[in-house]
């Protein structure tokens, strides 16, 4: 959805990031992950810490190297020294491409998969824990707070987020707090609280951490209210020794764009394996045509809207006259 628009706002965004970097360098203060994410690494699955300002300066000095390290770490993780063959999770989604047409009223995606080399005696054993995360694109977001100014409720403060998932759904075999420790969950952006909410560098410098936390909680709360942040404990169900499934709902107001499905396999608090898959959520038919028209040729679209309005108005007037004389 943002793909087309990004053409137009990429430059100011780049400036903003640049300015943020400069400001961070100048002040010698820790910058947020937003900087690293803003450079385009966020979507590739780099396990960045969410929201919070990271304490280490190396965080922003060398995002590329850090990213590479993270990747390596990910690959190493399942390597638990064991004689038996390692468990590996494999998964897929029920629908790879979802069409958003004028009749789109939301849908449901089933994420299913299996544990290769499963040592689980039965489906009910609870030997493994599986967490499924379905995440939308990182999109810029603005959170505002109202306060009372001379008797009126006015937006006074705001925090800009360089990126926040447009959609974030998490399903698990049991509450994620029971599955693994916070640092591990945070590292992999598992859980609503650890979704990658990266405040703009400017906001990080200006606003106190406690305040930032309030904003973050508000964003999560509001997104949950909108139905685009979803948490479903016990929604991942094992069907056999190795087969599992999770149904995740996509509401009608889900922002259009690619989605990433991440599946994590845990055993006693350790991450054994993970798997990633993609879901395409795309406009189709008239929706796509209108949207492209409105975004790519806005002036022409404006004239088209006027023409449509005039025709509709005149047709109605003609109908009215007929009724008048009849």
């Amino acid at each position: 959805m943002k793909r087309v628009r990004s053409l137009t706002f990429r430059r100011p965004l780049a400036c903003l990031i640049g300015a943020g970097l400069m400001a961070a360098l100048w002040a010698g203060l820790p910058a947020s992950d937003a900087v690293a994410q803003g450079t385009g690494k966020a979507e590739t699955g780099g396990q960045a810490q969410p929201g919070k300002a990271s304490p280490t300066p190396s965080d922003w000095r060398d995002p590329l190297r850090k990213f590479a390290q993270r990747k390596k770490k990910d690959e190493r993780l399942p390597a638990k020294a064991d004689q038996q063959p390692k468990e590996v999770v494999e998964a897929d989604v029920s629908t790879r491409t979802i069409a958003v047409t004028s009749a789109f009223t939301g849908t449901e995606i089933v994420v299913f998969g299996s544990v290769v080399n499963s040592r689980q005696p039965s489906a009910e054993a609870g030997y493994y824990d599986v967490i499924v995360v379905l995440e939308g694109m990182p999109t810029p977001l603005l959170a505002r707070r109202k306060s009372n100014v001379a008797g009126l409720w006015v937006n006074t403060e705001s925090v800009a987020y360089e990126s926040a998932p447009s959609y974030y759904a998490i399903a698990s075999t049991r509450p994620i707090e029971e599955i693994a420790d916070e640092p591990l969950l945070q590292r992999h952006a598992i859980g609503l609280d650890f979704a990658r909410l990266a405040p703009a560098a400017q906001s990080v410098l200006e606003i106190e951490p406690a305040e930032l936390k309030t904003y973050k909680d508000a964003v999560i709360r509001l997104k949950q209210k909108e139905g685009v942040f979803i948490k479903a404990d016990y929604a991942v169900i094992f069907i056999g020794k190795s087969l599992f499934r999770a149904a995740i709902s996509l509401p009608a107001n889900v922002p259009v764009g690619p989605l990433t499905a991440r599946v994590y396999l845990f055993r006693e608090g350790d991450l054994l394996s993970s798997f990633q898959s993609r879901v395409r959520l795309e406009r189709e038919g008239v929706e796509l045509w209108l949207y492209r028209f409105a975004m790519k040729q806005p002036v022409l679209y404006g004239f088209f809207a006027v023409l449509l309005a005039v025709v509709a108005g005149l047709l109605a007037s003609a109908a009215f006259r007929r009724r008048d004389t009849a």
Partner: peptide, 19 residues
């Protein structure tokens, strides 16, 4: 709506069009 204390003080928005 302007004078009554809102139940939710926060709001989120994606900016329409070019931000």
């Amino acid at each position: 709506d302007l004078v009554v204390t809102p139940s939710e003080l926060f709001s989120i928005s994606k900016t329409f069009g070019v931000p």
